[in-house]
């Protein structure tokens, strides 16, 4: 069973990424690094595009040309934000598959850390389990 519904995921990650960009300088970091990301999530099926301007979902996201694309299941997304996932190992085991310059993918991990710190707040808000 999916860890969250598509509706919850879009609302949660819309808020999370917007806050990271506005309050944590994530947009500036993305812009300086020349990184945009397209997430292809399964269970629930959803797509999201993020660049320095914020997150967008669905057909709007599909039209974008990302630098990095990451494909994973919803429970892996949840584990990642809970800091419960060894990302290099998840990549090696194909739990996450990424397309785009490897150096940019490696660079993304430290940039996304502030989001991990505030993710538990959203777990509470959306009644998600705090353990993967």
């Amino acid at each position: 069973m999916a860890i969250f519904t598509k509706k919850v995921a879009e609302e949660l990650f819309g808020e999370l990424w917007t806050r990271m960009i506005k309050d944590y300088g994530f947009g500036k970091s993305l812009k300086e690094s020349g990184i945009s990301i397209y997430f292809v999530v399964s269970d629930p099926d959803m797509v999201m595009f993020v660049d320095e301007n914020g997150p967008i979902f669905g057909t709007e996201a599909e039209k974008k040309m990302p630098v990095v694309t990451m494909k994973m299941k919803g429970d892996i997304v949840h584990k990642f934000w809970l800091k419960d996932l060894n990302v290099p190992m998840a990549l090696a085991l194909r739990q996450i598959v990424a397309k785009g310059p490897v150096n940019k993918v490696l660079q993304l991990l430290p940039l996304m850390k502030p989001g991990m710190e505030i993710y538990p707040e959203y777990c509470k808000k959306f009644k998600l389990p705090m353990k993967a």
């Binding site: 990549l91 090696a92 085991l93 194909r94 996450i96 598959v97 990424a98 397309k99 785009g100 310059p101 490897v102 150096n103 993918v105």
Partner: peptide, 8 residues
């Protein structure tokens, strides 16, 4: 290919 795909 392998500098654009993870895992290679």
């Amino acid at each position: 290919l392998n500098l654009n795909v993870s895992p290679p």
